[in-house]
C-alpha cells in the first residue's frame, strides 16, 4: 500500500518536473498563429500586399499590424478565412472586390524579352527570347508582377470573363436578373 503511494507520487512528481523543464527548454519563440496564417495565404510571394512575401505578411497580420483584407489575389475567400482564424468580425462587404483578374499580353507590343516570365511567381507566362509570350490563364493568379516588369507596357490585367460554366444564380433579391423559373406557376 505504502509502496504504491510512494511510487505513484514519485512518478507523478518526476514526470511533472520533466514536463516543466521540457516546456522551458523546448519553448518556441514564434507564434504558431503566423504559420497558420501563412498556410491560408496564397503563398506566391507576389508582394502586392506591400510586405516582402507571404511569411512577412502573415507575421504582420498575426501582430495585428495588417488587416485581414491584406491579400489582393486571395480576394474575399482568403479574407474570410483569415477573419475566421483570428476570430475577428470583419465587414467584408466594404472590401474592394475587383473580382479575379488574369494577365493578358498584347501580341502586337511584346518584344520577347522574357522579363515577365522570369518575374512570374507561378510560371504562368510561356515564351522564349525574341518569341511572343503568352499567359496560361489557369496558372495565372492576377498578381500583376508581370505588368510592372514589362518594358514595352504590353501586359494588362483583365477580369476573367463569366462563362456558362462559372455563372450562377444571384442571391434572391440582389440581382437584376429574372428570378429562377422554378415553381412560378399559379396554384
Amino acid at each position: 500500500m505504502l509502496e504504491a503511494i510512494v511510487g505513484l507520487t514519485a512518478l507523478g512528481g518526476g514526470l511533472g518536473v520533466f514536463l516543466g523543464i521540457a516546456a522551458k527548454r523546448l519553448h518556441v519563440e514564434s507564434s504558431p498563429l503566423e504559420g497558420d496564417i501563412e498556410a491560408i495565404l496564397p503563398g506566391q510571394n507576389c508582394g502586392q500586399c506591400g510586405y516582402p512575401g507571404c511569411a512577412a505578411a502573415a507575421a504582420a497580420v498575426a501582430k495585428g499590424e495588417a488587416p485581414v483584407t491584406v491579400c489582393p489575389p486571395g480576394g474575399r475567400p482568403v479574407a474570410h478565412a483569415l477573419a475566421e482564424k483570428l476570430c475577428l468580425a470583419v465587414d467584408l462587404s466594404g472590401f474592394a472586390e475587383t473580382g479575379p483578374m488574369v494577365a493578358r499580353i498584347d501580341e502586337t507590343v511584346c518584344i520577347g524579352c522574357t522579363k515577365c516570365s522570369r518575374k512570374c511567381p507561378t510560371d504562368a507566362v510561356i515564351g522564349a527570347a525574341k518569341q511572343i509570350h503568352g499567359v496560361i490563364a489557369d496558372a495565372c493568379t492576377g498578381c500583376g508582377a508581370c505588368v510592372a516588369a514589362c518594358p514595352a507596357g504590353g501586359i494588362r490585367l483583365e477580369p476573367i470573363p463569366v462563362t456558362l460554366q462559372s455563372w450562377y444564380w444571384p442571391k434572391p433579391g440582389t440581382g437584376k436578373t429574372p428570378r429562377s423559373g422554378n415553381g412560378v406557376l399559379t396554384q
Binding site: 496564397p42 503563398g43 506566391q44 510571394n45 511567381p121 507561378t122 510560371d123 489557369d138 496558372a139 493568379t141
Partner: peptide
C-alpha cells in the same frame, strides 16, 4: 486555383 498556384510558386 490558389492551391495549384501555391504548388507552382513553390516549384519555381
Amino acid at each position: 486555383h490558389n492551391e495549384e498556384a501555391k504548388r507552382l510558386a513553390q516549384q519555381k
